[in-house]
Design a protein around this nucleic acid. Structure first.
Lengths: 352, 352
DNA sequence: GCCTATAAATGGAACGTTCCAATAAATCAA
DNA sequence: TTGATTTATTGGAACGTTCCATTTATAGGC
């Protein structure tokens, strides 16, 4: 219906009988123009079916209002929660964040970051893909684009980080397991190219050490941070000569996978083998058995990340304080006491 | 480290000792430039830390290469699967799709669409928010931006649609339930402002009619298309004088909610009350009990939508054929036979 | 060697905005 | 009135690209 070629401020100007500059001022809501003129212009805008060309505007303006959110695994509900938190604060700032998925693939991530930069983003909130090389964010830094890492960080980087207290969370979880009488523990999922992995593993180990679990009684099984990865972890654990009786999982997805695999072996999660997750996604509460998990207030971290980003943009800096979010262990039904501890001396039983 | 102001093709030109036009040609991979020159220029591009300004380019070029994906509920894993399918095809076309969430809110959707348009998207794949007004996509149409609806459609709109065969899916599911001996059925979740709702409900009703279920024995409970909505649906159903013994749920999220609520009432999903979902998200298989659901090949539909979009952009049209994807019922454990049908005459029992 | 054809590189004019400096109109102090 | 001040409006020059029409260099045909 409308005019073939897209309308510009000149078309509006002609329609309203003013100059392009006046139109521009109206568009920006400047208080300098007479109210009646503004009304006239706004009507013309409607009439010609104008759509603002932000690309053109950004040519002159210093900054765009696009904020990108780069996520490593869209299928993990955890990140949806993170996104929801962010959106809450961006929405009230009149900003529409764009989400891009890297599917845990550094090459794809490179493309995504490049595309976002070309688009002239004002800032980026990133959960970097596993295996990200140290130089991946060099270009962003050179261009002075504010970046904050959420949930994950890179080994040595000055980019601010918003993350839960991984060490403490893992400590709490492991302590809980040990308190339940478990003596042979495993840490399932994740891999050492992830900083978070070391943090969580660190907390886990500290708990083991200070609470008297011998190093030879803790089993580490790296794996994908997904359900599938969790299933694989359990398999390899059960194939050990002296399998563990409880596991702290890198995240809830892994924990779900472990529980699935347990059932496949005729074992009941919680009763026959204790499992604790990390992240406390909404599903955790509803799973059967309900998953004990380290709650990290994902949406809250998302909000925090968004706030930090906004502040960075506003004060045009590329630096900010890190933020470590509080965590707490939500005890549900997925980890009962060590069965064998009840029946016979510890260190003898076989899980299968 | 790098120069303060961001580098432009002029900087590259100076560095490489050529003209800006040559640089532009190199950037576009034109075959007109001498290979050695191209090499020289590419080196300069690296040296000055150049980042392409797509906004500026789009000022001259007819179309951008940005494709937006507007999704009504990011937290539904279903949409993540859809997104993954799309990304697969866009990736191989060298396109990075940007995802934006409307959180089932038409006002937010308006903002999102506006923002995307201002950004100059080449096309949009949209799952419209519930309650979207008919005029919401007028501007897009006026601007000639190709749009395809995925999974959901609007009442009267010429925008092409990629959707599963909702009618047939619901028919299959209802027929299955009836075949299991259930005589009082419910349809849970969704609302009549959704076209999909009518499609699925239509299939459900047709099965009831042709297989001899009286209209007074079917219960309709509208509700949110979420876990929470499902829980609410079951509550109201159980409060009826003669509650149903089986339900087809609008989608899997609703079905999960229903199963949760059943447990809360001490009822075992599958044994005491049959439930069928719709979409067959990956969780369905792993739930306890595993959810019988209508499988719609979500990722496949995503791929299809992406292909259609690509074709529309390429042939610069805003029209395309609708596509109705095949569905099939995946029978698992969430719907056993009607218990009461075994013990006593139908039409008497009470579910609670 | 000269003219023509081809290849490679270039300057200039867009594209749709914003912003500054400048103008025009209205108001006020004297 | 007149000059100074304030209030509204405006033209022009950017911004970083692409694309067209030229120019310049290279090669080919005779």
């Amino acid at each position: 219906m409308a005019s073939r070629a897209k309308a510009t401020i000149f078309d509006i100007a002609r329609e309203a009988g003013v100059s392009k500059s006046t139109v521009s001022l109206v568009l920006q809501g400047s208080g300098l123009i007479r109210p009646e003129t503004a009304v006239k212009v706004r009507k013309a805008i409607e009439d010609v079916g104008y759509v603002y060309n932000r690309g053109a505007a950004n040519l002159r303006k210093a900054h765009s209002n696009v904020i990108g959110m780069v996520i490593n695994d869209l299928t993990n509900p955890f990140f949806a929660e993170l996104a929801v938190g962010m959106e809450r604060v961006f929405q009230s700032a009149g900003i529409v964040p764009f989400i891009a998925n890297t599917a845990e693939n550094p090459v794809r991530q490179e493309e995504v970051l490049k595309s976002l930069m070309e688009q002239g983003v004002a800032g980026l909130i990133v959960s970097p893909a596993r295996g990200t090389t140290p130089g991946a964010f060099r270009r962003l830094e050179m261009a002075g684009v504010p970046v904050v890492f959420a949930m994950r960080r890179l080994p040595e980087s000055r980019i601010p980080v918003i993350t839960p207290d991984n060490h403490r969370g893992a400590y709490l979880a492991a302590a809980h397991l040990i308190g339940k009488g478990h003596r042979r523990l495993a840490f399932f999922g994740g891999s050492s190219d992830l900083v978070v992995y070391h943090e969580r593993l660190g907390g886990f180990r500290e708990a083991c050490e200070t609470l008297g679990i011998a190093a030879r009684d803790v089993l580490l099984v790296e794996g994908e941070t997904s359900r599938r990865g969790g299933m694989a972890c359990l398999e390899t654990a059960l194939s050990m000569p002296e399998p563990p009786t409880a596991a702290l999982c890198f995240n809830d997805a892994v924990a779900f996978g472990v529980m699935l695999a347990l059932r496949k072996h005729g074992l009941e999660p919680g009763a026959d083998f204790a499992v604790v997750g990390f992240d406390d996604v909404v599903e955790a509460e509803h799973y059967i058995p309900a998953l004990t998990s380290v709650s990290v207030d994902t949406a809250g971290l998302g909000e925090r990340a968004a706030h930090v980003m906004l502040k960075m943009i506003q004060s045009r800096t590329t630096r900010a304080e890190d933020h470590i979010g509080a965590v707490n262990l939500v005890v549900r039904e997925s980890c009962g006491p060590d069965r064998r501890a009840r029946n016979r001396p510890a260190g003898m039983g076989d899980a299968a």
